[in-house]
Structures are given as structure tokens and as C-alpha cells.
């Protein structure tokens, strides 16, 4: 004697369980996919209240170097040391700063370091791999090591955007 009700019942139950699992699984997957959008809104820690950086008309090394010189002039106009820096990634300026050593009374506030901090606030990422740093002058060891820690790919300086070597942590 065979009882077909049990396996049938089991099959129905299994199907129900599977359907429920699929439904809930789908919901869970949707929720998990939406989590980054809900809590991060794009990039974690990026400060969206900051006014956007005005981009140069054409994205050339000369134009970025010219912006670094503009930052240097801004620094010297505000009575600070005459240095400026710009950080560029994918043809866009993602951070720029004049030197603020005198203004902020901070010996570490060189233009390059302030530009790295500007990127940290705007982009909200510790590492900006493949970015290029344009300085009005060659970087000091502090700024070069800072660029190294931030993952900057190349350093350029001056109006002609000379250089192009990757920053080194230690020069000896």
C-alpha cells in the first residue's frame, strides 16, 4: 500500500517554501542592492555641500598648470607663501588649494597637502589612484610622501607642467 498524500504534501510544501524563499530572497537582494544608495548617496564621506570646482575650458596639462599658478597667486595675495597645487583625475580637477601655512598657522598646510585634504573632503576617498598633482613648484619631501600615501600617480610642476614621475616615499 502506498500513500501518495505524503510525498504530494511534501512537494507542495517544498514548492511553497521555495516560492517564499525566492520572494523573500528577491526582496533581500533588492534591499541589499539599494543599501549603498540609501546610506551612502554615491561616495561615502563625500562632502556635497562644497561648491564645485570651476573646470578649465580645455582639459590640457597646461591649463591645469595654469590653475596651479592661479592658486599660487591667490596664496601670495592673501599674504601666504607663494605656492599652489591642483589634483586632476580623468581630465577633471578634483581638488585645488593655495598654501595656508601663514593663514591657518599650520606648518603642514603646504599647497599640495591642502589640495590632498580638499580631495579628501570632496571625493571622500583615502586613495585617488592614477591622479596627477600639478604644483606651482616642485613638491617638498613632506608633500611628495603625502602624494605617495594618497596614491597619486604623477607629479608635475611649473607653468610648463614639467616632470611626470611618480611620487616616492623616501628619496634616500
Amino acid at each position: 500500500m502506498t500513500d501518495h498524500s505524503l510525498p504530494q504534501h511534501g512537494l507542495v510544501r517544498k514548492t511553497l517554501v521555495r516560492r517564499t524563499f525566492l520572494r523573500w530572497g528577491g526582496r533581500m537582494a533588492g534591499t541589499l542592492a539599494a543599501l549603498p544608495l540609501l546610506f551612502r548617496g554615491g561616495q561615502a564621506g563625500a562632502d556635497r555641500s562644497m561648491p564645485p570646482i570651476e573646470q578649465p575650458a580645455e582639459a590640457t596639462p597646461r591649463a591645469f598648470a595654469a590653475r596651479a599658478i592661479e592658486m599660487r597667486d591667490l596664496a601670495s595675495h592673501t599674504g601666504d607663501q607663494g605656492y599652489g597645487a591642483v589634483i586632476v583625475k580623468d581630465g577633471k580637477i578634483i581638488g585645488q588649494a593655495p598654501s595656508r601655512v601663514v593663514l591657518h598657522n599650520d606648518p603642514t598646510a603646504h599647497a599640495e597637502m591642502e589640495a590632498l585634504r580638499d580631495v579628501a573632503r570632496r571625493v571622500g576617498r583615502e586613495n585617488v589612484r592614477g591622479a596627477v598633482m600639478y604644483g606651482s613648484s616642485p613638491a617638498c619631501p613632506m608633500c611628495e610622501a603625502g602624494a605617495y600615501w594618497a596614491g597619486i600617480g604623477a607629479l608635475r610642476h611649473g607653468r610648463a607642467a614639467a616632470g611626470g614621475a611618480a611620487p616616492r616615499l623616501r628619496k634616500c
Binding site: 561615502a44 564621506g45 601655512v101 601663514v102 598657522n105 599650520d106 606648518p107 603642514t108 597637502m113 590632498l116 585634504r117 579628501a120 571625493v123 571622500g124 576617498r125 583615502e126 586613495n127 603625502g146 600615501w149 594618497a150 596614491g151
Partner: peptide
């Protein structure tokens, strides 16, 4: 801070300069 330059020594120098109101 998402800031690669926020090492302990840099933070301490910045805080000392802010408290003492001098950069030397």
C-alpha cells in the same frame, strides 16, 4: 577622514600649533 595625510604626527603638530597659536 578619508585623508591619507591625517597621520598621527601631522594631527598632533596641527593641534599643538592651534593651541599654542604659533607655527614654530
Amino acid at each position: 577622514r578619508h585623508d591619507a595625510t591625517a597621520h598621527a604626527e601631522i594631527e598632533a603638530i596641527q593641534e599643538a600649533c592651534r593651541r599654542e597659536q604659533r607655527r614654530d
